[in-house]
Design a protein around this nucleic acid. Sequence first.
DNA 1: TCTGGGGTCCTAGGACCC
DNA 2: TCTGGGGTCCTAGGACCC
Length: 442
Amino acid sequence: MRSHASVMHLDLDAFFASVEQRDKPSLRGKPVVVGGVGGRGVVSTASYEARRYGVRSAMSTREARSRCPHAAFLSPRFHAYRAVSDVVMGLMRELSPLVEPLSLDEAFVDLVAADLPDLEVATVGAVAEELRSRVADATGGLTASVGVGTSKFIAKVASDLDKPDGLVIVPPGAELDLLRPMSVTIIPGVGPATAERLRRAGITTVADLEAVSLDELVRITGRAHGAGLYALARAQDDRPVVPERETKSVSVEGTYDTDLTDRPLMEQLLTRQAGEVAARLKKSGLSGRTITIKVRLHDFTTLNRSTTLPSPTDHAGTIARLARALFADLVEAGDTSGGVRLLGVGVSGLADWIQEDLFGDSLEPEDEPAPDLPDPGLTRRSREGWQPGMDVVHRELGRGWVWGAGRGVVTVRFETARTPAGPVRSYAADDPDLTPWRPDGS
DNA sequence: TCTGGGGTCCTAGGACCC
DNA sequence: TCTGGGGTCCTAGGACCC
């Protein structure tokens, strides 16, 4: 905890809905609900007019419609929100280089890195009001709620105290008086499950939490969580404002209006999602080793299956093939027989380099249909361009595909084994028995 | 016809290595 | 014949956040 209130948290009020009302004057003053409009959609943001009818974020759109049938129900327009967000983040960066966005509509600003005469409450208060006013000017009237305190935790709690269009500064030393009467759910990381466990232990307020020993908290909530709660209950929070964070995973998923049972269709959907993931990886210059599929069944049971390659990939064909193989395992185990409501594909274990960089020249055509048809004009040197997913033929063992490649070694899985977990064989990258497979048999 | 989509972090168990 | 630890990687599931 700092000696001055120098961490600011800014939160744009009812952000998606406010942008819609700004862009469509006929919606101003009326209930607006932004979210999924399909049969299984949920609410992303409700305008304050809609909240009066009990419409909330994360509520099913079906329920929102029944609570507020006359609201305007809109699909999100992310490009518009991103543009507004960029403007607001830019205004904060003019204040301080240390800006940590949490989402399109929220960020922390470290005022220690701002060019201010001092960090007294009056000074940071004036700065915060100035920022709020600039946000409104630059965005066509959007309002922001701002909190300032001695830590991220306090700043975030403060920004929530006077929503919408509010400013709350918690002076140094006032933190515990503020927190103690509040529900434990004010603490980031305390969701429904943790709150229920704490409640069963008789802990409902921050004051209750403060009275519990570290050992007891660890027993109730686990090691990492317990330590975090113990500190936050005492307003101890030294987390820095971090402007850049590394992406850890990239994923695409979709929930379908009716449960799916048609396997070829599901494979097609996974293949398409793999292509979207690959495109996003490439756009970011990323590649990853672990491919994960997510399958949510008709009863909302969620299954994840993953497999890890020896080297990273950003190839649509490779990701798709592995996703389908993982899915095949679930289908063959009978897990999907009751129908599937959601399918997803993700890549994690990201590296900020791609396979091509390791070997110099790449043989792969830029992308789809990718691994199935490598350039026929291979030279010995360029054969180090083996890519995971590429089809190959071994002189004796027949057709297989490249599981991993790197450091002069290529690992091959043969067609007889269908699941990614099965055995593979490794060869020197220039092993003459191994050649790329071509559909004409040449 | 309750329950999105994009993420992050944690836990626990097993494999494997030293 | 009994029986270590620690560390790392991988997989699966779950909680949580906006």
